[in-house]
């Protein structure tokens, strides 16, 4: 009972903070003068045109309602529903991320199990890891010659490192005793890898995967601003060019919500594979 009451009180507090925050925001936005209040001079110099400004939350909420009630409309290249834009972004992230996982996890196993491989590959990892994924973009665009694939490549290159390093770390840290259990039961190396080392290292590997998906979602926005065409990053930049700050704020919120969803999905998997010693 104390836990549920704690949750309840926390929810009340969150809600209060939200409402207070929105009210302050709403109050802080100066209302635009109605056309009737303007002097003739002001009207002649264009002050009657709607001014660009940070919109109040009420407008953002109205925008969100409008967008979310029809998220998948497609009215030409520069006017697609938020659902379609997010769909493109998620698709790119998942493809790049999956490719990274397919390479990083087996390679991480190798590095974790073989001190030779660790020592030989470590310098490459240490040099490549700190490179901003966007720095790869020009090279990717030139070599791949396709903006879509380049964006996927950038996701691939940014999500590979945390998975690789965590897999290697997790595999190298598997308790000697558990490996000895596999050895005294005469398990072959493949069976040992799948029945002992993989489950033992899974929580650490999932930690890496969770960091990776977070980074990938951060990077896709920037990558899509560069490559353009579709995607939530492109959408934000396009609305900035349209000076539609209401849509910008709405899409920022959507980026946050989707990012939270991706993290929660991996968090769920992480809890499923974790174990208490």
């Amino acid at each position: 009972m104390p836990t549920s009451s704690l949750n309840f009180r926390a929810a009340i507090l969150s809600l209060t903070l939200l409402v207070v925050g929105l009210l302050i925001w709403e109050a802080a936005i100066p209302a635009q003068k109605a056309v009737g209040e303007l002097t003739e001079y002001e009207l002649l110099t264009g002050a009657g045109q709607p001014k660009a400004g940070v919109p109040p939350p009420s407008e953002v909420i109205a925008k969100a309602w409008e967008q979310l009630s029809n998220p998948f409309y497609d009215a030409g290249p520069n006017d697609k529903g938020i659902g379609i834009q997010i769909g493109y972004s998620i698709y790119r992230v998942l493809v790049g991320y999956a490719l990274a996982a397919v390479i990083a996890i087996p390679l991480g196993f190798l590095i974790g199990m073989s001190p030779l491989a660790y020592k030989a590959l470590n310098p490459f990892i240490q040099v490549l890891r700190p490179i901003s994924p966007l720095a790869w973009m020009p090279l990717a665009l030139f070599v791949i010659q396709d903006s879509e694939a380049s964006a996927i490549f950038v996701i691939f290159i940014c999500s590979i490192w945390p998975m690789l390093i965590n897999t290697a770390f997790g595999v190298a840290g598997v308790r000697e005793d558990w490996v000895n259990v596999a050895r005294t039961h005469e398990l072959n190396p493949l069976k040992t890898a799948f029945t002992v080392i993989l489950p033992a290292a899974a929580p650490t590997i999932l930690t890496g995967m969770r960091i990776s998906i977070g980074i990938a979602w951060l990077v896709i926005v920037a990558a899509e601003m560069l490559v353009g065409g579709t995607g939530i990053g492109y959408y934000v930049w396009n609305e900035w060019n349209n000076l539609d700050l209401t849509s910008v704020i709405f899409s920022i919120l959507m980026i946050g919500v989707v990012g939270m969803g991706l993290d929660a999905a991996l968090g769920f998997v992480q809890r499923a594979v974790s174990y208490a010693e």
């Binding site: 558990w178 259990v181 005294t184 033992a200 594979v273 208490a276």
Partner: peptide
């Protein structure tokens, strides 16, 4: 040759 280790060496996820 079966072994019983001091620290049990059970696999905690099973």
């Amino acid at each position: 040759r079966g072994v019983v280790f001091q620290n049990y060496s059970l696999l905690p996820w099973l």
